[in-house]
Amino acid sequence: MFWFLLIAMVVVVAAVTLLVVGGGDSAALPEAAPEQLTDPLPLHRPVGRADLDALRLPVSPRGYRMGDVDEVLDRLGAELAERDARIADLESALAGARATAEGRRDLFDMPGEETDR
C-alpha cells in the first residue's frame, strides 16, 4: 500500500508540474511582459515632492529594474545640481547686495548727526 501511495503522489506531482510548465504549445502560464515605468517623472516641469510620493518603480524577479532606478536617480541628481547652482547664485547676489548696502549707508546719514551703527 505504501508503494502505491508513493507512486500515485509522484504521478500527481509530475502531472501538475507538466501542467504549470506547459507540456506543449498551450502553456498554462503564458509569458508576462516585463513591468515598465508607467508614470515617469514629469519632463515639462521640475520634480516636486508629490511626484516622488506618487512614483512607483516596477519590480523584477531580483528587485527593482536597474534601468528605471538609474533613470530616476539621474534625473533627481541633475535637478538637485541645478537647484544647488541656483541657490549659490542667489546667495552670492544677496551677499553682493548686502555689501553694496553697507557701503552706501553713509549716503543716508546727515552731516553732523551721530549714529549708533
Rank of each mutant, 00 (worst) to 15 (best):
D68S: 08
G24Y: 02
R98T: 06
I87R: 08
T38R: 12
L55Y: 00
P46C: 03
R56V: 15
L19H: 07
E91C: 06
E71D: 14
D84K: 11
L76V: 04
S26W: 14
G23M: 02
V13W: 07
F4H: 09
P58V: 01
V12K: 08
V72W: 00
A88I: 01
R104Y: 06
A32D: 07
P111E: 10
A101Y: 03
D109H: 11
V47K: 00
P111L: 09
L41V: 01
L57C: 01
H44D: 15
L43H: 14
I87C: 04
A28P: 00
G22A: 00
D39T: 15
P61H: 03
R86T: 10
V13I: 11
P34I: 01
G67M: 14
T100Q: 12
V11T: 12
R117M: 13
G77W: 02
L80F: 06
R62Y: 08
L6I: 08
P111A: 12
V59L: 12
R105N: 07
M110N: 13
G23Q: 03
A85P: 00
D68Q: 10
V69M: 06
E71H: 11
M66S: 15
E91A: 10
V21Q: 04
H44G: 12
V13G: 05
V12W: 08
G103M: 13
V59F: 05
V59M: 09
A81D: 08
D70V: 13
A54F: 02
L55H: 00
T115Q: 15
V69C: 05
L80V: 09
A32G: 07
T100C: 03
R105K: 09
L90F: 06
S92E: 15
S92K: 15
R45C: 02
P58K: 00
A15F: 06
A32Y: 04
V11G: 06
D70C: 11
A54P: 02
L94Y: 06
R83T: 05
L18Q: 11
V12S: 09
D84L: 08
A78H: 10
A95S: 13
D74C: 12
R62E: 13
L18P: 04
L37V: 00
A32W: 04
A85I: 00
P111R: 10
P61T: 02
P58Y: 01
L57Q: 01
V59R: 13
V12F: 09
S60P: 00
A95K: 11
P30S: 00
D39V: 15
R83F: 05
R117P: 07
L55Q: 02
L73Y: 06
L29A: 00
D109N: 12
P46L: 07
V47A: 01
G67A: 15
E35V: 06
T115S: 15
A97G: 07
L73D: 07
F2P: 07
Y64P: 01
P40C: 03
I7F: 11
P46Y: 04
W3M: 08
V11Y: 06
A27E: 09
S92C: 06
V69Y: 03
R104V: 05
L55A: 01
R105Y: 05
A99V: 05
S26K: 14
V13P: 03
M110D: 14
L80Q: 10
D89Q: 14
A50F: 09
I7V: 14
L18N: 13
L5M: 10
L52D: 04
